[in-house]
Design a binder for these strands. Sequence first.
DNA 1: GATGAATGAGAATTCATTCAT
DNA 2: AATGAATGAATTCTCATTCAT
Lengths: 204, 204, 204, 204
Amino acid sequence: MGGPAIYAPAMVQKRRVGAESSETRARIVEATEQVIRDEGYAAASSRRVALRAELPPSLVHYYFPTTDDLLLAVFRRGAEQSDAMIEAALTSTDPVRALWRFFSDPSRNALAMEFVAMANHRKAIRTEIARHSEAMRARQAQLMEQLLGDRLADHKVTAAGLSLLLAAVGRTLVMEADMGVASGHGDARASVEALLDELLPPKK
Amino acid sequence: MGGPAIYAPAMVQKRRVGAESSETRARIVEATEQVIRDEGYAAASSRRVALRAELPPSLVHYYFPTTDDLLLAVFRRGAEQSDAMIEAALTSTDPVRALWRFFSDPSRNALAMEFVAMANHRKAIRTEIARHSEAMRARQAQLMEQLLGDRLADHKVTAAGLSLLLAAVGRTLVMEADMGVASGHGDARASVEALLDELLPPKK
Amino acid sequence: MGGPAIYAPAMVQKRRVGAESSETRARIVEATEQVIRDEGYAAASSRRVALRAELPPSLVHYYFPTTDDLLLAVFRRGAEQSDAMIEAALTSTDPVRALWRFFSDPSRNALAMEFVAMANHRKAIRTEIARHSEAMRARQAQLMEQLLGDRLADHKVTAAGLSLLLAAVGRTLVMEADMGVASGHGDARASVEALLDELLPPKK
Amino acid sequence: MGGPAIYAPAMVQKRRVGAESSETRARIVEATEQVIRDEGYAAASSRRVALRAELPPSLVHYYFPTTDDLLLAVFRRGAEQSDAMIEAALTSTDPVRALWRFFSDPSRNALAMEFVAMANHRKAIRTEIARHSEAMRARQAQLMEQLLGDRLADHKVTAAGLSLLLAAVGRTLVMEADMGVASGHGDARASVEALLDELLPPKK
DNA sequence: GATGAATGAGAATTCATTCAT
DNA sequence: AATGAATGAATTCTCATTCAT
């Protein structure tokens, strides 16, 4: 894995072309993310990406032989950033509430929802999302277990269950808000926060 | 009787969609739903739908001038079925648990998630989903309010908040299961059911 | 020719279907002219015409089996109106100047130019326009010959030549004005009017 | 060398059209012109052009993202050729008569009339024709002013007016001849030539 | 490392016309 | 006299991908 990238032509299947570290590569990934954010993932064609990056379309294919390769690269970059944010949340002074804020934060969620949507007809993406989701949930569960210990049991929740619950409600709030649905949002948010208040020492 | 009184091409606003009762029309809607289920909404092109329905593509356009029209027809049919199921749930002997079963039922949810994904780049769909979601939530809130009354307040939940919460967790379970994610699922499900047990008289 | 129209199905070639005098027929012709004026002749499809007339498209084909039939009907109606206007001009007190005003009148010319454009790829239209143009020019030449007699010869013009010249300059002014070209327009107009002044007794 | 540096799809504004020097590109433009001449501009679809050029339709779109782009390229090439011919006429020994011959020359005019017809529903073409017409007329007026000076005033014509007049009559003769109209043509031609004889020293 | 050129496939529409009733 | 349904052919445009240089 760590070895030097071999610049194989596109026909060679499982080989990533273009240096991992290339500036051009980063530019393409960045442009793709922008396109997805602005126009939705369905617009993330090599042509439009190339246009945004001000590069010829064939260069996009040079670095990312298939569209899946490109999309995966964007997902992985986003996942790494999410991981870092979650790590920061989990090691903050108020980890659970920080996690909740993370899950109900619109900006991050928008991109994530695009990938979930994408997962429907992109097996490669689906697999990668599943892998990452499992890992994220496991990590969160592990930390919350440490932090909340038996207070969780008192409330008939497990660490993994709570993690899923926060993610579910957070994402739904964001997704619905994007569509213009608002009924029950304030109430659900309040309920979640009440639950956290019971589980946690009051915020300072 | 039957068939669209479409005097207007796609570009025209006021289109009479014609009688809902046309065998061909129904066949197209059915084929489209199948395509969406099997291959994802991105595959719901007039061509593929026509192929599945064994009809010429132009006939699809005859009944549904634009792709949005077609997709909306499928959504509306699904929404009506959902409405009926929800109504049945809400008027059953154990309405809240029936609602929860509805939300966490995979078969219905799969199609719903396709439409949510679709909403990202189909404004017409987005608008319709939003409208329907609001209506559904309002209806559920109204009924739950009647049923649970002040038991809700004791648990720091509102009717609308609970409706959203059930929908959020239910959908997340289904969506993640579709992708192959399972961690925390049993736990979250148990927590929700525990909450319902507290709110409701025990199931018979 | 004069006999009663036989309501033959579309397959019968040279037979006009639908009563000459039908109100529906007139409505279709009127709608077609409006479409041509507003959106250009290329938009004069049976569907759009039907839409404008608020009639089903098949009814348009019932009256006008082919698109050429429809277009010809519109042309002929316009030609008749033009003939009437020209006749009025030629029998007015100042016939030649009235003719010049007719030729340089934008409103009438707009539709005429659509038909000239159409003539390029519609043989039936081309033939009809040619026939009508010849007839119009002959009629004008005849009248001008009577009116101007030998004054024409003094100015090295013939009646037919003058008719063509007025038509040519008039149409060019209108057509260019439509496109936004204006250079030389005032000058050319003045020259034509100076010529008419030489040929004619001064306007009252 | 050359070929289009088109990083942008049709929807994008700032498109670099790439080097004029590409054999394929030239072949497409040439094929388009032939199609327009032979079958009228309405037949200038990417398919038919591709067929004539013996190239796949998608290649036509590669060089000319939109039909307007293609049509404009054909127009511009024709305009350049016209400009060259006009320049040659204007610098010949008998510039005004050469210009008249140019305007009444069928071969050149046929294509020009197609573009005028096209202008009706192609804004891009309309704008370009207007620009070019204005420029052409200005250039001609300038030269004629130099050449004919005050002889023009004696005949109640201006340079720009004369330019328009020659263009109007020339084009009308050609257009009508194309349709099979001939009445008055010899006479009008004679009148124009008589006018030129008065304005100019007799031809050698 | 990079890129211009090329291409087959497919998408969304629109259209003229036919036909059975 | 009228019309709903149907359909094959076109049209414009977009895309992923390949390939030679």
